[in-house]
């Protein structure tokens, strides 16, 4: 569970930063980036040993 929380956090933070770096700066686009990052973080955490 702790691994999942850590990766959701890392994913959300990374997703927001990447969306910004991609010049997608409206609140909706940043939020979409954050959600994309959360999905990626969740998938990654699922693949890790717990």
């Amino acid at each position: 569970m702790h691994t999942i929380i850590a990766f959701l956090f890392a994913g959300a933070l990374s997703g927001g930063i990447i969306a910004f770096a991609l010049d997608m700066k409206t609140p909706k686009e940043i939020l979409q980036g954050v959600v994309g990052g959360i999905i990626a973080g969740f998938l990654m955490a699922m693949m890790l040993p717990r």
């Binding site: 909706k28 980036g33 693949m47």
Partner: peptide, 20 residues
């Protein structure tokens, strides 16, 4: 889907580490 282009691009960028 609702995650749009921005969310999809973030997932694409992260796919390599997920696929490992």
């Amino acid at each position: 889907t609702p995650i749009g282009l921005a969310g999809t691009l973030v997932i694409i960028i992260m796919i390599p580490v997920i696929a490992s």
